[in-house]
Design a protein around this nucleic acid. Structure first.
Lengths: 220, 220
DNA sequence: TCTTGTTGTCACTCATCGGTGAGTAACAAC
DNA sequence: GTTGTTACTCACCGATGAGTGACAACAAGA
């Protein structure tokens, strides 16, 4: 009587009333694990991201993560593969009632869209933060998937507009993207960035206005 | 014979030939601990930053960290206090043979100086990465010290130049700083940022040129 | 029914973490 | 010497991490 079922009283945060007889369904379990991993990473960050934590969150045994994903690396790969769907969700059908006639129009709009998308996506934020904090195998894989998704997104949005002569669009855009990413990360972590408060919508309007000015300053 | 001294063979990275009879000097020990903590944080990042690791690196018992610094929090505070010296080391005597007549001149120069300073300072980089990755007590303390040091630095460099009308210098400068920080972090972690390679001096020249153009685009 | 493969659970090892309490070695005052 | 203080080390605790091997429950084919 070592494992008397009565002893397994429901824990506080476990699904209570439901004994939740786990049905034998590998596909569903795999999905549950992947979903749990994404939620965990988004909510807790990469600090507490591990086999045990994911298994706890998914409500299954960690052994299944090894079996189905070959460990944490495989699971991270799966998250990365899942990131491809990010693009589809972020392409608005219209251009916000704006005619994108110039490269400056385009970049202004893209900047604000990217800013908003990052602000709305905790998982993506955590991944970006992870990227600049470590250089492990896991991060590299995830990072590659993310940059590919980002590139695809930019590609689709750009259309056929060409950047003005005399500027290095790759370098300039890299700096713009860097700025947006860091602003959002700083805001998310501490509510401010380099003395600029980033909490209220009002604060964000200021940041967006400054971002627009910067984009217009360089692309006209 | 549980603790046969012969078993305690010197580890690979420990001071070998020197038995290094630790002399009883509290001040020196405190300094050694602080130095070890800074080096550890700079080299390994905040992931493996803990009492045990610092004690190992300092070559003393972790108990001393509790005694002298009241634990890891106190030690982090000490690192933060030490950050104040950052300012003095980063103020060049001349202006690089350049007359800073306008706010644009100033900001161009400051941007490049800050970029270079961050590139040269692994500890500062780790702290920035830490700031955007976590929001714990330790980070908040360190972050405050860093932002204060940065503000002081900017203050001293600015002199009496006033920003042009029509722009929000706080917001714009926050974005510029964010961009610089993220670019450097990305480069340090993965050697690139948003498709822009950041390894060779040539790569960095491109980035600096783009940064200059952005600054000039907004501040003239 | 018996067998075989899949799905899920459990129990364990080993390493490392933060933290603590007890004990030892150097030194100063007497 | 003896005594007391300071600087330092050691051995341990409970908790938690990754990872593994054995086993129970079940399903479907023979």
């Amino acid at each position: 009587m070592l494992n008397d079922p009565m002893v397994l009283t429901p824990i506080a945060d476990a699904p209570q009333a439901e004994p939740e007889k786990r049905i034998r369904d590998r596909g569903a379990t795999e999905k549950a694990i992947l979903a749990a991993a994404k939620v965990l990473l988004a909510e807790e960050g990469f600090q507490n991201f591990g086999i045990n934590a994911v298994a706890r969150k998914a409500g299954c045994d960690k052994q299944l993560i090894y079996r189905y994903y070959g460990g944490l690396n495989g699971l991270v790969d799966a998250i990365g593969a899942d990131l491809g769907t990010w693009v589809k969700d972020r392409i608005p059908e219209d251009t916000g009632g704006m005619f994108l006639l110039t490269y400056g129009d385009l970049m202004e709009r893209l900047s604000l869209l990217f800013l908003q998308a990052l602000r709305d996506d905790p998982l993506m934020r955590r991944i970006v933060a992870w990227e600049v904090s470590e250089n492990t195998e896991q991060v590299r894989r995830l990072s590659e998937a993310r940059s590919k998704a980002l590139a695809t997104w930019l590609e689709r949005m750009r259309g056929s507009l060409a950047p003005p002569k005399g500027v290095d669009p790759v370098a300039v855009n890299a700096i713009l993207i860097a700025a947006i990413q860091h602003i959002v990360l700083s805001a998310s972590a501490g509510g401010q960035c380099a003395g600029l408060a980033l909490k209220t919508p009002k604060d964000w309007e200021k940041a967006e206005a400054a971002l627009k000015r910067i984009v217009r300053g360089i692309y006209g």
